[in-house]
């Protein structure tokens, strides 16, 4: 698609969803909890048949879904895998997912797959490269996608931008949407000494369509983005900050390893819903809205 033309914007989704993992599916199908939407890890749902296909059908009949990918290697220097992308497109059509998101990272080199989200240097060349590839993906899928920031344990000396500026330039240049993982921003704040709030301030609010909340693990001398803990207090604080800046944004509770009982995830979802509701309340009140704006302006100055 040529510059100036717009890819169709995906329809919207609202409220606080949960990243649905296979061990929880029987309970979800039995009890049909009042969760507004679920997100599926696309790479786990590409099997041609068997139980996962029937689960996919059953879940998509009951809930709105979004798809989240980890394998596209958007920042990689190997050619884009259009076969994989065709599978994603087919999966999206099959389950009626509202949107598809991917990470701003690379995950392979010379067809060796790391199965990990490896960080990019924030350079002009990387910027041009990912913008071009995101546009190709959007052409292929025929719609905008969401791009997620990743946590990292190293930074490249060659970087020319801060993380927030890089993300904002990618979003504008590729005309894509953003999925902001606040846990990743906090992990990077501790790991690299960058202020997560300043990154949030850099991002174009109108492009932010989804927020991820997850738990990190404290290691000796750094934070690991482990997705195996409850959302930590500083991340809840950042969530509050982000909601006040961006308003109501669809939010997801993500928990991938050492899965807790379903009730624990429901508890996290309720807590996020409370934040969501209180932000809505404040935004709808003229007096409080003005107060919030003043508070934000004070924070900015």
């Amino acid at each position: 698609m040529k510059r100036g033309e717009q890819w169709p914007v995906p329809s919207t989704i609202a409220g606080v969803g949960i990243g649905l993992r296979t061990p929880h599916i029987p309970e979800v199908l039995d009890t049909t909890p009042a969760i507004p939407w679920f997100e599926l890890l696309a790479d786990n749902w590409l099997a041609a048949g068997g139980l996962s296909l029937d689960y996919l059908h059953a879940v998509s009949e009951r809930y709105p879904l979004t798809l989240h990918g980890v394998g596209l290697s958007l920042g990689g220097s190997d050619p884009l895998d259009l076969g994989y992308l065709a599978n994603i497109k087919r999966l999206k059509e099959r389950c009626g997912a509202v949107w598809y998101s991917e990470h701003l990272c690379f995950s392979q080199f010379r067809r060796h797959h790391y199965h990990d989200l490896c960080p990019l240097p924030f350079t002009h060349e990387a910027l041009r490269h990912v913008i071009e590839r995101i546009r190709k993906v959007q052409d292929f899928l025929g719609e905008q996608i969401l791009i997620e920031n990743v946590s990292s344990y190293l930074r490249y000396r060659v970087s020319q931008f801060g993380e927030g500026e890089f993300l904002a330039r990618v979003a504008e240049g590729a005309d894509c949407l953003l999925l902001v993982d606040l846990n990743n921003l906090y992990v990077n704040q501790i790991n690299h000494g960058q202020d997560a709030r300043r990154v949030i301030d850099c991002l174009p609010a109108q492009r932010v369509r989804e927020i991820h909340l997850a738990g990190y693990q404290e290691k000796a001398g750094f934070l690991l983005d482990a997705h195996n803990h409850p959302v930590a207090e500083p991340v809840w604080w950042l969530y509050n900050y982000a909601l006040r800046r961006w308003g109501q944004v669809a939010t997801l509770i993500e928990w991938d390893h050492d899965l807790p009982p379903w009730s624990v995830l429901m508890g996290e979802q309720r807590q996020a819903t409370d934040y969501h509701a209180s932000t809505l309340c404040k935004h709808s009140s003229g007096a409080l809205g003005a107060e919030l704006r003043a508070e934000l302006e004070a924070e900015q100055s």
């Binding site: 990990d116 990292s152 344990y153 190293l154 000396r157 750094f222």
Partner: peptide, 27 residues
């Protein structure tokens, strides 16, 4: 090693080991 710096208190070797370990643990 010369092109990156580790996060937090991590040396570059330790930071790269985190990534190697992530892949190994997944596989």
């Amino acid at each position: 090693k010369a092109r990156v710096q580790g996060a937090g208190d991590l040396s570059t070797e330790q930071a790269l080991a985190v990534y190697r370990n992530n892949t190994e643990q997944t596989l």
